[in-house]
Design a protein around this nucleic acid. Structure first.
Lengths: 345, 345
DNA sequence: CATAGTTCCGTAAACGTTTACGGACGGCGA
DNA sequence: TCGCCGTCCGTAAACGTTTACGGAACTATG
């Protein structure tokens, strides 16, 4: 015999009382409760997940969906590891468990998600790597599953979202570079349909326009969000007849490949071209160090968790004034890579 | 009304038949089965996870435990994403789902695991970031939960494991460097109790001894497995009175920090010191490119999955001759960083 | 002492599945 | 015609919990 019945027999009380004692119900004598808790600890009893969630229709599990294989999320492992840690800090307070739902690169993300929620796997979801048109959003909204997205989509259904402030990044980058004399500024965007690319490019365009400049389409580089993509951008940029004097890199890891391409051509960031990128653990350790936009991933995770919980009836009262939608600011950190000043033409 | 009962009512048959039809039992008429499958598809029916696993005591879920927060796993950016993808390729054939069990940096890994298995969360486990003494191994062995570890421990309990061939890496690195005239060779190891550190150091020592050389203790650098750790190693190494002429880096990401430290001192890998490291997506894109040990992470994931399944009674017959323990070979890929030859003294 | 209220606990139903068991039905051979 | 076997399906129990309900034992109040 296993489970709660074992515990009940051992203590010679009924399973109902055991359950009530463990769940902190008021109608159980304090002494009895202590006996139960003690025995549970000693016998290493932990309630069976399936039994519990079958009965009460809730799993106490929150799923963070990520897509495996590389080149998809556009973020490194360390990105998610840090975010996860922040999320869990909040969830721990509510006895919620975080698991990562891993969608294989072989499977359609929306279909994967449909299966996961139909099985009743999780009480809530966190979605990342949102595409511009993202079928997952509508799916969850229809099913009334609480969720939050890391990244806006065009198909938002009123769900809470957080997103990095790419508008702010675009504005600040362009402003700084223009102030330093740059007129021909290259930018990058992801190769896929990620919404952030559209947002970033448009805001760069506007920011340039505010300075009386226009965004040249051949200075918008599209690439996979990895080192190879950055290398490709570097090669393409260097092959231009008229090189831009500055570039803003939207992804974390592409700087390394970009540097390599420069290096092969004897060009040096900071000396021959100004480079602004995104922070990652290696940003400070490149040579020259990367001027980049940084954010606290841990705090981002905390905010994600709080936003999600505030949309779940059972937890909302703990987070009365959590904002539903939030642009997460990034901080411009000085490095050596943007030291190059363009001559006024 | 929901679930299988809904489906049964809709088709005007009993729930037992529906279940049998869906699960591919033989005792159901082909025509009935097709009607059921069709209706299930149309209504989007997916069996409830809790009900199913409560009844049959199995979840069809395999958990891959990883520890969140950074500096813990000691792997580079996309390491896990690639491994996951390989694992899933195998699991998909058996309708098994892979989820990542995320242990917060605030929680004791063994305690976390104890809770997870007691709740009956997963049918099997994959453990990574194994420490030299790892309480998780004994825990799972006692409870008779099928599992495989990525990394050997001293407390192995006869469970299947896979591990990278750090012996081979040590041997090949030392042999190559010695053949190129190096006599004073530095090596690195993780800061924590990870078993691979012990293995690697000892094998390097042996390999050196075979060439009549001794491993100097002050040339063994211990560091966190990240860029900052690599930077620290570089600084410490450059501060030595007598610098080694070569170094072997055991972690993936430390090369970037190491390069930075060199760069600040006007020293260049490949020209002034020979560097051998571990492959990661950025290895080819550093300047100079990193001579490193590479492995197929996707294939490693496949092997992990197969090894695990071969130890699970329900699946073992599919993998009759999967090796229980396996040293996974790494391939030495030429780069520019080890071009430096030491003068014979 | 009678009554009402409170405190605590046992009983049993319910959650959504799977599956052992048995029954209905039809085909077949003797 | 009778009995047997095979095919297909319905019935109900079981998995491990939680929780509504009711009842027993006390306590308080009059």
């Amino acid at each position: 015999m296993k489970g709660i019945r074992h515990l009940a027999d051992h203590l010679d009380i009924s399973i109902g009382t055991v359950s009530r004692a463990l769940n902190g119900r008021p109608d159980v004598k304090e002494e009895t409760r202590n006996r139960v808790l003690e025995a549970a600890r000693k016998l290493g009893y932990v309630p069976n997940q399936s039994g519990r969630s079958l009965r009460q229709g809730t799993t106490n599990i929150i799923g963070f969906m990520i897509q495996t294989g590389t080149e998809i999320n556009g973020q490194g492992d360390t990105f998610f590891m840090s975010v996860f840690d922040g999320v869990q800090e909040v969830f721990a307070r509510h006895k919620l468990d975080l698991v990562a739902l891993l969608c294989s690169s072989q499977e359609d993300p929306a279909e994967y998600l449909r299966r996961a929620v139909a099985r009743g796997f999780a009480d809530g979801l966190i979605l990342s790597a949102t595409q511009r048109q993202d079928a997952r959003v509508q799916l969850l909204a229809e099913r009334n599953i609480p969720f939050v997205t890391l990244g806006r989509t065009l198909t938002d259904a009123g769900q809470p979202w957080l997103d990095l402030d790419f508008e702010g990044m675009a504005q600040a980058s362009i402003d700084r570079l223009v102030a330093r004399g740059h007129r021909r500024i290259a930018i990058t965007r992801p190769h896929d349909d990620a919404n952030l690319g559209y947002i970033f490019v448009e805001r760069c365009r506007e920011a340039l326009a505010a300075h009386g400049l226009t965004l040249e389409e051949n200075l918008v580089f599209r690439s996979t969000p990895n080192e190879a993509g950055g290398y490709r951008i570097g090669r393409d940029l260097l092959a231009l007849e008229e090189r831009p004097t500055a570039i803003v890199l939207i992804n974390e890891t592409i700087a390394i490949g970009f540097y390599r391409a420069l290096s092969e051509a004897g060009v040096r960031a900071g000396s021959d071209i100004a480079v602004i990128g995104r922070h990652s653990p290696h940003a400070h350790f490149l040579s020259p160090s990367l001027t980049c936009f940084r954010l606290s991933l841990h705090d981002l995770g905390i905010a994600l968790a709080e936003t999600l919980l505030s949309s779940m009836p059972a937890f909302a009262h703990h987070y009365p004034d959590a904002p539903v939608n939030r642009l997460w600011p990034m901080e411009l950190v000085d490095g050596e890579s943007d030291a190059f000043r363009a001559h006024k033409s």
